[in-house]
């Protein structure tokens, strides 16, 4: 990533009270006993986990086990009702300034891309920097072109999302998130909506991003990516983490029955 100071972009949100880092200054995300209910349904049942700077965490588990909901609580797309979430020293509370500050440090990539269909690729990528970070248009466009180069589609800058393939759209979505110079990237099943031929082009970009030292939380069923890029894996079931370890530990020596079953089903194909 380019040096923030070069672009004149401050990544330090102002007016936000930072709680002193908990146990370790290296921790960038701290979740303590996070609960969430959808009405009567208890979907997150007390998640506690700490994620370090630069760590790549892959989150696996069956559908409906709460993995997407959990990463969506981290940038407040879903509200948690109990427990603490602390991102880069900022506590996620109902204070709108805290939410804005945390969102400005977190980029997110969705399963269904969610590009803005009425804007060109370039406008999609520059909108955040121009409107939120108040970067000048020329600078934002230059930075955006660099990012589009990085994800391998500079020639599509003037097109509209609908004119791109799924894989290209997802790479634009990654560029759009990176344009805000986030410290953390959340990926919510980024390849689940893609044709098999396009999955690898997106995973390649993600792997390159992981190697560059970005902190990443990735919900995915792509076990190849997990093996190659993850520092740590967690396995979700019934709204909580049931198993945690390095990819090798999880794949070669799963402890929990649910993990064993899941892996046997997903790896036999």
């Amino acid at each position: 990533m380019s040096d923030p100071a070069v672009n004149g972009i401050s990544t330090k949100p102002r007016d936000v009270q930072r709680t002193p880092p908990g146990e370790d200054a290296e921790d960038i995300i701290i979740c303590r006993d996070v609960h969430k209910w959808f009405g009567e349904l208890h979907v997150l049942t007390g998640i506690s986990i700490t994620i370090k700077h630069g760590e790549v965490l892959v989150i696996a588990g069956p559908s409906g086990s709460g993995k997407s909901t959990w990463i969506r609580t981290i940038n407040r797309l879903e509200e948690h009702q109990r427990g603490d979430i602390i991102v880069d020293g900022i506590e996620l509370s109902n204070d709108i300034r805290n939410i804005a500050a945390i969102r400005s440090e977190i980029g997110m990539v969705f399963q269904s891309f969610n590009l803005f269909p009425h804007l060109t690729v370039l406008q999609n990528v520059t909108l955040g920097p121009i409107r939120v970070r108040k970067v000048r248009r020329e600078e934002a466009e230059e930075a955006a072109m660099q990012l589009l180069n990085r994800v391998g589609i500079p020639e599509q800058a003037r097109k509209y999302p609908a004119q791109l393939s799924g894989g290209q759209q997802q790479r634009v979505a990654i560029a759009r998130a990176l344009a805000m110079q986030p410290k953390i990237m959340l990926f919510d099943e980024p390849t689940s909506a893609l044709d098999p031929e396009m999955i690898s082009e997106v995973l390649d970009v993600m792997r390159e991003l992981a190697e560059s030292g970005m902190t990443m939380l990735v919900v995915t069923h792509e076990m190849g990516f997990a093996k190659a890029a993850a520092d740590r894996m967690v396995f979700f079931d019934d709204g909580n983490i049931v198993e945690e370890g390095t990819p090798e530990q999880i794949f070669e020596n799963p402890q929990h029955d649910r993990t064993k079953l899941f892996l046997s089903q997903i790896l036999t194909h």
């Binding site: 400005s104 997110m108 969705f110 969610n114």
Partner: peptide, 10 residues
């Protein structure tokens, strides 16, 4: 669309 907009900080 709302979620994507919020996630880039709008």
């Amino acid at each position: 669309q709302h979620e994507a907009a919020f996630s880039i900080g709008l």
